[in-house]
Amino acid sequence: MTLPFIMFFVCAALAVIGALTLILAREPIHSALALVLVMVSLAVLYLLLGAEFIAAVQIIVYAGAIMVLFVFVIMLLNAGVEERTDYSKLAKFAGLPLGIFLSLALAYWMLESFIGKQIANGLGGTNASVSTRELSAQLFQKYLFPFEATSILILIAILGALVLAKKDE
């Protein structure tokens, strides 16, 4: 058991606990905090893979910007405790077995996939450590068009929110 190995399992467990809390918690703020825990644990997993830049960006964008806005809005609206319904009989009885089946199927599919086999053979992951310089070179040369297109997409979303929020004259 090496130190990165232990770190991986600790963070993986934290991420799963966070995800479960996110669904099961009744207080919106607790759910939001659980989601922050998931984001931060994922960032540590990226860090273990040697992807420093992705880890930092994960925290800045998701935990630092998006989730702060979530918490801010929940606080501003003073959202109360979540109400639960009991209408779906299907979800009550078939929910858990189907969920377990889905996760097992996903795990099997990932193991059998090309990348999964590469990682199992020790081929992936070894070259995962990419410097920020290389990453930005790829992003601003090879993938410049998709990069800019994404930024315009986000801009359109902001403009859409502004149009919707504008008061009628």
Partner: peptide, 15 residues
């Protein structure tokens, strides 16, 4: 990427 990490940690400081 020390600078990025400082910003990452200060950005969660709001919580």
């Amino acid at each position: 990427i020390g600078l990025m990490f400082v910003f990452a940690i200060t950005s969660i400081g709001v919580y």
